[in-house]
């Protein structure tokens, strides 16, 4: 039981950065924009959050600054793709490379410093026998990621603003013709996506490993991008996918430590394989997929056309 709880706490820690980054990208893609720069924005958030947390001594300030840093980098992407009409795929890839470089440069003087990790557990509640540690033994950002999932769902499907955002992503010409500012709406979505990616990155540098090392996200931005697609742009399934991925990543390490003999190369593939397989199977209804996929994804919007 203790081991089970310990595993679950690790699973939550491995999944949370993916939930944040993927939830942000989901909103961006729902507005019809494909930003492949998630990895770069996560790194930017990781170093900014770490630096601010270190300088201020406050985790909250660190997280806020991480969100701002990710959002600023996303703003650059927005300017290039929405104003200068640059190709989104190329710009997104460039954003990742830029993010890797600039985070390394900014982070140069922070190499070798440790922070105290963000505190885990909710006082009193975590002392409840059996379920206490399981449900209340996590850090605050784990809960925040669940709240964020619910908020994104509520925003997209239950509010007028969410409806407009989805309309922009489905048919930007139609949305434009009835008077919505496609570019403004997309800007807001892009900045939100950047902020979420930044917080996801900061979770790595402040909660999982409270330190800065270059390229510490190690590809998680790409996993977040894949999750959005395989979850067919639905917030609940993004959450499920992130936890499947995190869960199997941790489970395979535990199986290895228990001495189960499976090739480690195969085990390393397992999170990817299972996550993709499960998400493809639960989302295989092509009618529903069409309904949820943003039809204008990646297309450049030009107001005059």
């Amino acid at each position: 039981m203790d081991l089970f709880v310990a595993i679950m706490v690790n699973v939550a820690a491995a999944s949370t950065p993916l939930v944040f980054a993927a939830m942000g990208e989901l909103v961006v893609e729902k507005s019809g924009v494909l930003n492949l720069g998630v990895e770069g924005m996560m790194l930017m958030g990781a170093i900014a959050g770490f630096a601010a947390g270190y300088a201020s001594g406050s985790m909250l300030i660190g997280i806020i600054v991480a969100g701002i840093a990710g959002g600023l980098l996303a703003l650059l992407f927005g300017f290039l793709t929405q104003h200068l009409l640059a190709n989104q795929v190329a710009t997104g890839l460039a954003l990742t490379i830029f993010g890797i470089g600039i985070s390394a440069m900014v982070g140069h003087s922070f190499v070798g410093i440790s922070l105290d990790p963000i505190a885990k557990g909710i006082p009193f509640l975590e002392d409840i026998p059996v379920i206490g540690k399981l449900f209340f033994g996590h850090d605050i950002l784990v809960y925040a990621s669940f709240v964020m999932t619910a908020l994104v769902f509520y925003f997209l499907y239950k509010t007028r603003a969410g409806l407009i955002l989805r309309a922009v992503g489905t048919n930007h010409d139609a949305a434009h013709s009835i008077g919505y500012s496609v570019i403004k709406i997309r800007y807001m979505a892009i900045v939100f996506g950047g902020a979420m990616a930044g917080i996801g990155g900061a979770y790595l540098s402040m909660a999982v490993n409270p330190m800065w090392v270059e390229e510490m996200t190690a590809g998680r931005g790409w996993i977040a991008l894949a999750l959005v697609v395989f979850a067919t742009w639905r917030p609940g399934r993004v959450l499920v996918g992130a936890y499947l991925f995190g869960g199997i990543s941790i489970l395979q390490l535990n199986l290895q430590a228990m001495g189960v003999t499976i090739a480690p190369q195969l085990l390393a593939m397992l999170p990817y394989l299972v996550t993709i397989a499960v998400l493809v199977i639960i989302s295989r209804d092509s009618g529903l997929m069409k309904k949820h996929a943003p039809a204008c994804l990646g297309k450049i919007f030009h107001a005059s056309s």
Partner: peptide, 27 residues
Amino acid sequence: IKVVWVSSWFDPGKESDAAKTLIDQGA
């Protein structure tokens, strides 16, 4: 000695997951 393979030379997140796993299992 318990061995956990992480299939990477450098992935701080995975390395720390592996360390936590090993500690959880008694190392």
